[in-house]
């Protein structure tokens, strides 16, 4: 934060999808990109918390030629002369694959299912795990940074990593404020209508089209709407 304040005033210039744009030095790529109104999906990012780079959904492509690489924009600083592409084929493909993996892990989450509709994901090629956590760490950071409780954290390693209280017991530090559940992207269950057993939700009884957030006031009158565009054959 202090670095951000010190260097305020001088802007860095970089290329965003071919357009020359300016951003505050010290801000992350994601912040800069969102400032220019581009939609980048995220799951582990929250404005009030330290970026963590866990979900990788915010991938963008930087550099050109052989230097071209994918980076997590939420933890990548803006730099002078950076070439950023937010919606190249490679980025979109990667983003879909990441979401596919996340959904295979956690098919019961409404947020993930909505995002799948938004990214027009049609198929999950992986065996579902039916887990209830994507290890995004939002709850851990929420507990530590906003609630100053530091009651939960990561334990274990690799595939056995999970979020817990010390010694898996009721923590003395926990005030049961519920902030961890409030911020969790996997807690909210998806609709339990027809096709609730499928890995990928068919979005059949979504009361609100998922595109509504993109076009604030206007309702979408396209037939079929994006959230109902999937036919039962699409959902496996």
């Amino acid at each position: 934060m202090s670095e951000k304040n010190r260097s305020r005033g001088e802007m860095v210039t970089f290329m965003l999808n071919g357009a020359r744009v300016q951003a505050d030095p010290g801000s992350s790529l994601l912040e800069a990109i969102r400032f220019y109104g581009l939609d980048i999906p995220t799951l582990c990012y929250d404005e009030g918390l330290t970026p963590y780079g866990a979900c990788r959904l915010c991938v963008v492509e930087v550099g050109s030629g052989k230097r071209e690489k994918l980076v997590a924009s939420c933890v990548h600083p803006v730099r002078e002369g950076l070439e950023v592409r937010t919606h190249s084929n490679r980025v979109l493909k990667t983003r879909k694959m990441i979401l596919e993996l996340l959904i295979a892990r956690c098919p019961g989450s409404k947020k993930l299912q909505d995002m799948a509709s938004e990214l027009e994901l049609k198929e999950i090629k992986f065996r579902p795990l039916n887990d209830d956590c994507i290890l995004c760490g939002l709850c851990v950071r929420m507990c530590e940074e906003q609630m100053a409780a530091r009651a939960i954290g990561f334990a274990g390693r690799g595939r056995d990593r999970y979020i817990t209280t010390p010694f898996d017991m009721t923590s003395e530090e926990c005030r049961k404020c519920g902030a961890c559940m409030y911020i969790c992207p996997a807690c909210e269950l998806r609709c339990q209508g027809t096709g609730a057993e499928t890995v990928l939700c068919s979005g059949c009884i979504n009361t609100e089209p998922v595109c509504a957030s993109r076009y604030d006031d206007a309702m979408c009158f396209m037939v079929p709407c994006l959230s109902c565009v999937r036919t039962p054959e699409d959902v496996k």
Binding site: E144, R150, A151, I152, G153, F154, A155, G156, R157, T164, T165, P166, F167, S171, E173
Partner: peptide
């Protein structure tokens, strides 16, 4: 572990995380 966390002024869960990581 709880004692170490208290003395080092770190969350118990951090000590627990390290202890279960390795």
């Amino acid at each position: 572990l709880e004692h170490v966390a208290r003395r080092l002024n770190i969350p118990v869960v951090q000590a627990f995380g390290v202890a279960t990581f390795f």
